[in-house]
Design a protein around this nucleic acid. Structure first.
Lengths: 97, 97
DNA sequence: ACCATAGGCAAGTGGAGACTTGCCTGACAA
DNA sequence: TTGTCAGGCAAGTCTCCACTTGCCTATGGT
């Protein structure tokens, strides 16, 4: 649902998570926590990231695969492609001089 | 700022307003109110729409031009184009087995 | 068996934002 | 000028959501 995608993208922390997954796919929750803390200085609790990942997953932007006691997260950019075209396909008829 | 664009797109009512402006550019506040009420059944106050338009305008998605006692609103899709490419251009380098 | 690790499940708190209500300003017509 | 119409400026209310805290489950190592 495109509805959830917009809501998922609304939060800056979630966009950062997408950035991280775009840079390195298949990270675990703890890896994402560590990289957000070190690279972006975000001192968030593990639960916060976990909840963000749940939102991203229910929006279809992140896929998760369980393997033993690890859970790897993969980015899925498919829902992003047909979101903005809703207004762009209405074209821009030479409105910028 | 891309930050504001995501926040602006987060609200369903604001996306509806963009839909309306995409369908017919240069509407006034009252026109948008009327069309949202009749076409989408949204019984929102005039102030609500006005505040939404302010958010959209500060995000650069809507331009407004004053003319007498009317204020016309025009859609600007420029900020939408370079938003999603942030993750799409990072591509997916055959990482899915 | 034990203990440490990776993650999940709540319930609770605080703040941002969507929406309203009321009053005020400016522009056009009679 | 007076009345009306389009819009703005505040307040104030209330709901949702991001984040925390605490405890619980399960997997793997030794």
């Amino acid at each position: 649902m495109a509805e959830d995608v917009f809501k998922a993208l609304a939060d800056p922390t979630r966009r950062r998570i997408l950035d991280e997954l775009a840079e390195r796919n298949g990270q675990t929750l703890f890896e994402i926590c560590a990289r957000l803390a070190t690279k972006h200085g975000l001192g968030l609790s593990r639960q916060a990231i976990s909840q963000h990942l749940a939102v991203l997953e229910s929006a279809g932007l992140v896929r998760s695969r369980r393997q033993g006691r690890y859970k790897f997260h993969d980015l899925d950019t498919a829902p992003l492609e047909h979101i903005v075209t809703r207004w762009l396909s209405t074209d821009t008829p030479e409105s910028t001089p």
